[in-house]
Design a protein around this nucleic acid. Sequence first.
DNA 1: CGAATTTGACCCGCGC
DNA 2: GCGCGGGTCAAATTCG
Length: 304
Amino acid sequence: MDQYSSSSLVDTSLDLTIGVTRMRVEEDPPQTSALVEELNRVSAENKKLSEMLTLMCDNYNVLRKQLVEYENKSNMTERDQTSPPKKRKSPTRDDAFSSAVIGGASESSSTDQDEYLCKKQREETVVKEKVSRVYYKTEASDTTLVVKDGYQWRKYGQKVTRDNPSPRAYFKCACAPICSVKKKVQRSVEDQSVLVATYEGEHNHPMPSQIDSNNNLNRYISVGGSPTEPAAANRSSSLTAAVTTVDLIESKKVTSPTSRIDFPEVQKLLVEQMASSLTKDPNFTAALAAAVTGRLYQQNQTKK
DNA sequence: CGAATTTGACCCGCGC
DNA sequence: GCGCGGGTCAAATTCG
């Protein structure tokens, strides 16, 4: 949580004015004023957007605090009730394998007692397992149930469930059985463009995409939990998109910090590339739309 | 040709 | 006990 609140302090400005203003002034005075005006307008807009984003982050933090408090309260009451979890435990060989390895009792013939112990261990691990849900905004036309969260997954099943007409895809972490994290991905009933990913468990290894930091995946800024845990419960899709964009901007900012200072032509090129890649990037447009609609919604709420 | 994905069969918990 | 439904397995298929 603190990690995220710190992210709200991050300078989200696109900083599109870098050196360009000075460059133009020297070259072509008649056009400069218009360009400067345009740049000022864009940076003002940019400033507004970053303010909105900061505001949204703050609001999110407040909401999240409330949610955590609420969850803590409900967990306390759940603990009082001694009834075991109703949901069926995954009776996978992975679980049996892991519990056997942890217990150091592999290759033994399974007696009833062993089975019972395994079952008990399984129950305990399931109770301990972190289950979190993450919403991803995608194109409605995009029929794939692929969520680029930075980790590598292996699909092991797909099912159409009763409560939702769209199929649910089942994934295991590609590092299984070392990492026993699973996720389910299904389109939201309410909004087909929203993918709901349910994560079970925590990764015990770093995110593979961290090595390749320049790819444009839907990377996360961890809001809660461990840094390797991508999911945080009940994150809104708009926020995810906004967060992605902040991340994206930041990554683009650090692409070539030295060339920005030294070479005006490179600066110009960089700015153009940045602008074009941002406008082409669906994540950016989605984040922008989310930020604006969020703000509008907020204004409507305050008016009422 | 090996790895990844698809998909029908199967397993198991739960409600009736 | 039986059927339903969610979850998993594994053979078949596709892909790079």
